[in-house]
């Protein structure tokens, strides 16, 4: 065969394969698994003196996995993210590079609300505080977790005090004292989420904070309406519907997670989504 013909056949064969191949690669399903992450000991050995890069790669991997699931349809998650694997990956990352703030920040962003692993989150933050001794964010997160989720106000005050000492900001010192006792949980959550949303560099993570913040603003609106009703009528409203009929709520509050707000028997505002995508999507009518 002449060399020219042979080259031509090879080029045509390559074109015949590369077009369907590239097509498939473009439309292939999102990798919905985090995949297997070796134990930190193995990772430490094989990454030799590149532990920092390995840690960053693991964190990016979990962030991209989260971004791929959350971004296209951020209101209803068809696939609940594999939070346990994400946590495992981040935990491995901080074993390799205990100073990496991205890992603590990202773990905190999903561990407490979505997975309800507040103790695991605080253990990870405590671990980080041993290394990032200058960073006020870690005790601040831990303080919020303790106060909001664990309702352990004395522990929360210790964390906030530390955050205040490290940052020199009055706000945290106030949080450690008066604010924590006086303000409601919703106010705490809004203050915390506003700060987190501002600091998030990654679009998917920022969006997830923004949605949560939106949900809590709706909760606050409901709480304010409930308190106005109580003041005017001298009794607590029996249900959300009663509040709406009373005319204190326009527009009608909407849970961005797709759940439905309701009033607990003790008057607390709650939602069927429990502020998570997975539950909101599952219970959506």
């Amino acid at each position: 065969m002449k060399p020219f013909a042979f080259t031509l056949i090879l080029i045509l064969a390559y074109l015949a394969v590369i077009i369907p191949f590239a097509d498939y690669q473009r439309t292939r399903p999102v990798v919905e698994k985090m995949g297997y992450v070796p134990t930190p000991q193995v990772l430490k050995f094989v990454s030799a003196d590149h532990k920092g890069v390995t840690a960053a790669a693991l964190i990016l991997k979990s962030m991209m996995y989260f971004g791929a699931i959350v971004e296209p349809q951020f209101n209803t998650l068809k696939v609940p993210p594999d939070y346990q694997s994400m946590y495992g990956t981040l935990a491995a990352a901080v074993k390799l590079d205990p100073y990496n703030m991205d890992a603590y920040y990202f773990a905190q962003s999903f561990l407490v609300w979505d997975v309800h692993e507040v103790k695991a989150a605080n253990a990870m933050l405590e671990y980080g505080m041993k290394y990032r001794k200058w960073d006020f964010m870690l005790p601040l997160f831990a303080g919020f977790n303790s106060a909001y989720f664990l309702k352990d106000y004395s522990k929360a005050a210790q964390y906030y005090k530390r955050a205040g000492e490290l940052s020199g900001a009055e706000l945290f010192v106030n949080l450690a004292g008066r604010y924590l006792w006086q303000s409601g949980r919703t106010e705490q959550a809004i203050a915390y989420l506003t700060m987190m949303e501002k600091g998030a560099g990654n679009e998917a993570v920022r969006r997830s904070f923004r949605i949560r913040l939106q949900a809590f603003r709706e909760v606050r609106r409901l709480e304010e309406a409930r308190d106005r009703f109580r003041a005017a009528e001298g009794r607590a409203p029996k249900s959300l519907e009663e509040l709406i009929r009373w005319g204190a709520l326009t527009p009608i509050p909407r849970d961005p997670y797709g759940g439905r707000f309701y009033l607990e028997p003790d008057g607390q505002v709650a939602t069927t989504s429990k502020f998570t995508h997975a539950l909101g999507a599952a219970r959506k009518p």
């Binding site: 600091g199 990654n202 993570v205």
Partner: peptide
């Protein structure tokens, strides 16, 4: 691509 430590990640790399 890093959320909170762009310079740090650049130095690492």
């Amino acid at each position: 691509l890093s959320m909170r430590q762009v310079t740090e990640l650049s130095i690492t790399l």
